[in-house]
Structure formats: structure tokens, C-alpha cells
Write a protein that binds this DNA or RNA. Sequence first.
RNA 1: GGUGAGGUGGCAGAGCGGCUAUGCGUUCGCCUGCAAAGCGAAUCUAUAGGGGUUCAAAUCCCUUCCUCACCUCCA
Length: 462
Amino acid sequence: MKIYNTLNTSEQNITANDIGIYLCGVTVYDESHIGHARTIIIFDVLRRYLESRGNQVKFVQNFTDVDDKIINKANAEGLHPLEISRKYIEHYFEDFDKLNIKRATVHPKATEHISDIINLIKKLIDSGYAYLSLNGVYYSVSKFAEYGKLSKRKTEDLISGARIAVDETKNDALDFALWKFSETEPNWPSPWGKGRPGWHIECSAMSLKYLGEEFEIHGGGRDLIFPHHENEIAQTEAVTKKPLAKLWMHVGMVTINGEKMSKSLGNIKSVRHVLENWGPNVIRLFCLSGHYSKAIDYAEEMLKENLIKWRQAETAYYEMIMSDGVGPIDEISSIVSECKNEFESALNSDFNTSLALNAFFKLVKGINRIAASESMTQSIANTALPEFEHMLDILGLQVQKITEQERQNITDMLKQRETLRAQKQYQEADKIRDMISAQNIVLLDHKNKTIWMKKEKIPADS
RNA sequence: GGUGAGGUGGCAGAGCGGCUAUGCGUUCGCCUGCAAAGCGAAUCUAUAGGGGUUCAAAUCCCUUCCUCACCUCCA
């Protein structure tokens, strides 16, 4: 499997069996939005895919739970900063569990790793990469010769293009804070004085702790390349003298009307809000619909398109599980193997989920075409269903499960309806159909049987 | 100003030297007692503009224009 590495600007093979992945998570001061969701969904599918190939994946995703924005919000709401972060971590899990994101192996928080952070800063000071100043401890960018290697920036360009006022307490305009002195909470004692960690250092400390000095994949949104990931490299590699991660993978932005979706622009669509209207499967499909490295534009129209596709996938599923009889499987066998190959080779070539989705829906179409021609059998279903479910699982999509009680209940009603239809008592038969559909069950009449489908309730679909 | 990524049919989105995906949409059918769902066919020959290289270019080179992202917190 090959993935584009931001560091070498070329595709790189993933050969290891044990794969450590560090994904930069969210700063918990507000609701997560679709932009966060896209990055997290991409990495969720990547992880699922690697696991399905038999790789041992250790997935680490942090929460930044100490930060100026959290403190500002806390002040504005009259709460303790840690109450703010705790609240939004809870919301995070509520939302992303609904989105069917697998929990990371570890979800470390900055505030729970203060001693690891302090130890790392100590090492940086001891080795001359960091210095004590009036407002805190700073990293000396000029000491790290390779600074800029990830974002392809030259330090001269950075200085000339700097948009912020130079802080006179720093030795150099590019130096960044490892530890910020603060007398107010949240703060922790340190050898240099009370304060809190800078933003970047937590990821260095926590990736070192959980994944070691060198691991396979480090990722996040494109907007993290500079300065966040550049600074992580500077911090970690100054100490370890080894490449932090073998591969850097960055996910494109979600835009809305062509502009980046971000809290500071105030144009966000929260995961919570979009989930309420469209449900998890449509969101996942939407976020996977383009190549991960490119921007995607949020539009209701696109969600609608993915909703239609999702309905087709659901139909295919029910056609299979409601099938019976035996028959030849040659046609479906070749469709299945073709789609399986396309699906895998799409993901293997720089994780092209757009093409993988094409392969998945080709399978869906194949199944529905057979069903529409009244030739679906259990033999066919047995051939196609395992691969269908395998893809569904990698994509993290979930069809509604039928309970035994529902099965019994619907089967009984269907029998009555069949009797009435046979007697051409259509009005009575339709009443039963209405009762069934009130339970969110859709009927599909075939020539010799009726199948029923428990489709996902999606408010936007009405 | 610097750096990076892009500009493909009505929309989305692959392809990244030859065989001109795919999906959605639209139109017309089929199926049905009627629906719903689904299926089929048709439709659209697109590759920002201008040069070039080549027998052959969305695909390579040059150039112009445009968009977005990053250079401040950001997934």
C-alpha cells in the first residue's frame, strides 16, 4: 500500500506489520465540525483497512485540553477551563461514536501528561535547543538545521512574511513557546516556574510516550503542516535524532462556498447538527467521496447525492438477506471479485476512497440489478454478502439491524397483506402497508414475494 | 510578498502520454393492482486561455489567467 508522504512529496510504501499512527485531534473548546469529522473519518477508514489486512495498528489520537481558547471560553462562561474541556470531550465522544468512529487505542490528554512534557522540555534545554525567557521557555528554531523540511519553508521567508508582531522577549521571531508562565489556572509547577505547556509540545511528548521515537504514520489536517507538525518535528527530532514519523499524511480542508470551514470564520457546520439531519452513513460517504488530499466543498446537494447512494446500498443489503432459493452464481462471482480487486487497489494507491466507493457501488448496482431481474437467490446472496459486509465494515457504514420481534411482527402483517392482495382487496392491503411503513419499514414487491427493508431514518430524506 | 495544492461535462469526481471512467442529474421506458424501491436505455464527448514537444496530450514543457490553503489559532 502506498501513501503520499508530505515530507518527501512522493508516494511511499507501507511495509511494516505493526503500525503506529498518531493523529492530531481536536482542541476541546467547542463542538466539533465537519472539517474535523472528515480528517477523523479518513483516518478511521485507514485504520480499519490496515486492520482488515492483518496489520497490528496502535492508534493514538490526542485531545488538546489546555489552550488559550479554552481559557477564554471558560472566562466568558464563568467556568473552570477543565470543565470546558471535559464537557467538549464528552460531546466529542457522543458525536463520533454516532459517526461510528472506532475509539483510538489511546486518547491522551495534554493535562494528564504534564510531567512527560516537562521532562521533554528539560532535555531540550539541556541540549541547547530551548532557552528560558521572560514569559516562558522557548524553542530556538535556528538551532534546528532542518527546520522547514516538512512545510518546505525557508526560515528567511518565514521571517519576512511574518504577519504578527515580534515578541521582544524571544531571541528570534520564529521561536515558539514550549512552556508559558501563568499565575492563573490551569497551571502546573515546573523547574522554571508555574505555567502551562505550549501547543506543540504535547504531541511530541505523547507520541514519544505511546508510539516511541519512530513510528509509521503521523497525520492531521493540512492546516497543521505549519507550524504544528513542523514544530513537533523540531522538538522531537532534536532529542531523538531520528525521524519522528516515517510518513506524514495530511487531509484536505472542508470548505463551504469555497472557503475553509473554521471556527474563526464562523462558517462551521457542527457534526452534531449535520448528524441530526443526515445521519452517520451519509456523512461518512460524503467525507470519503473525494481524494483525502483535496478539499471538498460542503453542500446540501452533495449530502443528498450520498443519501441516494446510501439508499441503494441499503436496498442491496435487504435484497440479499431476504433472499431464498438456489441457483447459479457465476455472474455474481465475477462481479464480486472484480469489485473486490478494484476496491483494494483503489485504497492501495494513495488511499483513493473515491475510487473505492465506486467499486463498492458497482457491487451494489450489480446486486440490485440481479434482484430487479427477479433472479436473486440465497446462493447469490451468500456469494456477495460477505464481501459487501467487508467493504461496509472498512468504510464504517452500518445498516439497521432487524430484531427478532420485528421480524415476527412484520412477517405476520405481510402474510395478511398477501392474502388480501390475492383476493384483490387492495384498499385493505394498502392499509397494512401503511401500518408497516409507519414502523419505518419499506416494502418492495417482487413477482413472487415481498421483501421488507428497515431503512435508516434520515430527517433530511422527506 | 513567499510557499504549496489545484483548475475536467449541469453537478460531483477519477484518470496523469494513445484504448476518451464512474456516479448524481435530466429524458424516455420497464416492473407494480397502485405505490415505493429498483432496473434499463438515451442524453452530456468535457478537460481554464495561448503557445510548444510528440505519429499521438486532461495527461509532458513554457506562458497567461483564475481558485484555494499555509505563512496568526485552526482538523
